[in-house]
């Protein structure tokens, strides 16, 4: 059990220096995240190729994602097992998304229209 006063507690110099630098790192990361979000919003209105916009959005979102998990969620400083554990779930999720999109994105998976359904329906006598 820790008994602490509400007042600021002195910490050793090295510890304080480490956490102080973290404070600045977090603020800088937040600024970078905000700027990237702004760029994402601007980029969808640019008169450039659709594939380029989509690729840029994917890259920018991935950068934001990685910045949050490695800095805000401390993966950069934690044991590598935490990263492995999280990435197992993430890879499985991405694999599921990719597989489902590949399956349902195929032309044969396009839903039948009502007209086709009408023509292909068996005749009931």
């Amino acid at each position: 059990m820790s008994l602490t006063m509400d007042a600021k507690i002195a910490t050793p110099t090295t510890h304080a220096g480490h956490t102080q630098s973290k404070f600045h790192t977090f603020v800088q990361i937040a600024m970078v995240l905000s700027v990237i979000t702004g760029v994402e919003i601007v980029i969808i209105y640019l008169p450039i190729g659709k594939w380029l916009v989509v690729s840029s959005l994917v890259v920018l979102s991935t950068v934001k994602f990685l910045l949050v998990i490695f800095y805000f969620m401390h993966l950069k400083w934690d044991k590598v097992f935490c990263t492995i554990l999280f990435f197992i779930g993430l890879v499985l999720a991405l694999g599921t998304v990719a597989a489902l999109l590949a399956l349902f994105g195929a032309e044969a998976s396009a839903p039948l229209t009502s007209q086709i359904l009408h023509h292909s329906a068996p005749v009931i006598v």
Binding site: K22, V27, F72
Partner: peptide, 19 residues
């Protein structure tokens, strides 16, 4: 995003004992 920053700062503060 800004709430995430504040959350990270909250953890950082408590790790230093600043309640």
């Amino acid at each position: 995003l800004m709430s995430s920053l504040l959350m990270a700062l909250a953890v950082n503060s408590l790790q230093k004992g600043h309640v």
